[in-house]
Design a binder for these strands. Sequence first.
DNA 1: ACTTAATGCTATTAAAAATGTAGCAATATG
DNA 2: CATATTGCTACATTTTTAATAGCATTAAGT
Lengths: 114, 114
Amino acid sequence: MSTDTKRIKIPRPGKPVRGSRTGQPIMVLFDLLGRRWAMGIIWNLHNTPCTFRALQERCDSISPTVLNARLKELRASNLVTTCDKGYCLTGEGEKLYTCLEPLGAWAKGWSKDL
Amino acid sequence: MSTDTKRIKIPRPGKPVRGSRTGQPIMVLFDLLGRRWAMGIIWNLHNTPCTFRALQERCDSISPTVLNARLKELRASNLVTTCDKGYCLTGEGEKLYTCLEPLGAWAKGWSKDL
DNA sequence: ACTTAATGCTATTAAAAATGTAGCAATATG
DNA sequence: CATATTGCTACATTTTTAATAGCATTAAGT
């Protein structure tokens, strides 16, 4: 469980990122969340800390390479951390989750008329 | 402005998608939104229809290849459509936007303590 | 102490997606 | 007509993601 962030690009507010030269917070967030499995990881981690391997299974057998990359990014962004049970959301991460939560209900309605 | 959807993979609720064999609506949505620029496009299109090229500029000069791919997906998913001003969000798209909106405020707070 | 099993990864190769640039066809405008 | 704008497509390059194997470390079982 290293916090090694070398050679990975973490989007940072105020700095140019993929998708925003200005580094507007929302665009930085979209850059971070708009990566494969980022939101799924937050969703699956909500209120249920778990080990790397358990998380891997919950995320439909996501490859360890990507899971590890996402976890590094999310930890560097202070959304995910480690606890005695393994990985879990930080306080900020849980707050972010509550912002995402309404999407669950919306998605159900959307899926009906699709 | 064709509605040509051949050769692109649109995630569909109820069907296995990238990231969910079960096709849970939320996972389908995450698959769709977890693609580069998808959320940024919705954000930029909110209440402000515009042409392909104008949208391209708003999205920090996103490449036309990706913009077009995202637009096809979002149109096929009934979130984006065309109007006299060019592209715009559908009713569903605007509803989705209201789900995303809180992220703007959250992101500002998050960016401070990062 | 010696296995065995689980955990957290890294390495590697291949496939898919995104980027960047050029430019074309169609329509509108002067 | 000539020019400009629009909505894209083509193509080559770079990044990401995927898929699979497996290693090092720790914890438990016998």
